[in-house]
Simulated assay, not measured.
Amino acid sequence: MICIRSNTLNPAFNIATEEFLLKNMEEDCFYLYVNNQSIIVGRHQNSLAEINTSYVKENNIDVVRRLSGGGAVFHDPGNLNFSFIMQEKNNETEGFKKYTQPILDVLIALGVDAKFEGRNDLTIEGKKFSGNAKCTFKGKVLQHGTLLFSSKLPDLSKALKVNPLKFQDKAVKSVRSRVTNISEHLNVPITLNELENSIIKYVRNIYTSSEIYEFSISDTLAINKLVEEKYSQWDWNFGSSPQYNFTKGIRTKGGHVEIKMDVQKGIIMQIKIFGDFFNTRDVAELENLLTGMPHNRKQIQEMLTSIELESYMENVTPNDFLGVMF
């Protein structure tokens, strides 16, 4: 086994690294990383339905889709993430317990009453501190999990808070649980870095032939290529969302504005605009302009700068309109 510790807080790079290790490394791998504030959404989720878009935009929070299924998770520098990328015999992957047990062992040794509960959660006193997910590729399994250590839980709540009335779809939904930080349950305080050291030491004791691995220049170039072509792209992070219907209404100076949309693979297939605003041009023209566009805030904002929105909706600003689109 090779053990790798990330030296970047870039979520797109760290998530891309997991794919690189899964698909390119013959050896079993253990990977530890910490991300800047970000939301990591599951492979089969509607990204927009999982996030508080205004809060995410205001706080420059990255949204990155991962390879594995499951629900959306909030990352920040108080959250440690671990990944096992392992060969599995006969392509039959075991349950989540196998690769979460080393984490439990370390925490129990530190005096924390941590347990495996449900399908894929680690808890302390009934509160979740770790969610885990997995995917497979050619006889290998990638299982990874979060470890809330000193995460800013109010930020987590705000970033993942979304209006349930906006979306009607069949995408996988995140289940919100009561959460806690590991640091709140330690008898003797330690730092996140010390926890990381304890985990990697324990894993290396289990897998006695393990060694610390540093990425080569070619490794880094390959990962950066994945970042550039996939994990930093709207098409992957948002456009890969399953089909969904979106409905939202807001009150503006010009009156009430409501939008209903059908979105497929991130593209607006149908859109209807309703409201009690006044106009001098037919709103159907605006609907036609929006049909076929990505449900992408930046691109729609650019389109709005090229038209006279006032002629379609008196006293409704572009910011108002973006507010009802997202």
Rank of each mutant, 00 (worst) to 15 (best):
E26Q: 15
A222R: 10
V175S: 12
N315P: 06
Y244V: 02
D62N: 12
I223W: 03
T252H: 10
L110T: 14
L104E: 12
Y207D: 06
K89N: 15
S240A: 04
L148R: 03
N14L: 08
Y207C: 02
Y99R: 04
K166H: 15
K140S: 08
N60K: 07
A16L: 04
E229M: 05
F167V: 13
A114T: 13
N193Y: 12
K115P: 00
I250H: 08
A114N: 01
N315D: 13
N24R: 00
E314P: 00
G42E: 02
I199N: 01
F246N: 00
S83D: 08
Q264P: 00
G275E: 11
L104C: 09
E228D: 12
K152S: 09
T53E: 04
Y213D: 04
R119F: 11
A159H: 10
E228R: 09
N60Q: 07
G323W: 04
I267E: 03
V179Q: 11
M25L: 14
L153G: 07
N10I: 07
P77C: 13
E229W: 00
T8S: 15
N52V: 05
R281D: 12
N120Q: 10
E228C: 04
L107V: 09
N91I: 05
F278N: 03
I124F: 05
D105C: 09
G42I: 03
F321G: 09
P294R: 02
K173R: 15
A133R: 07
K166S: 14
L165S: 15
Q233L: 05
L186G: 09
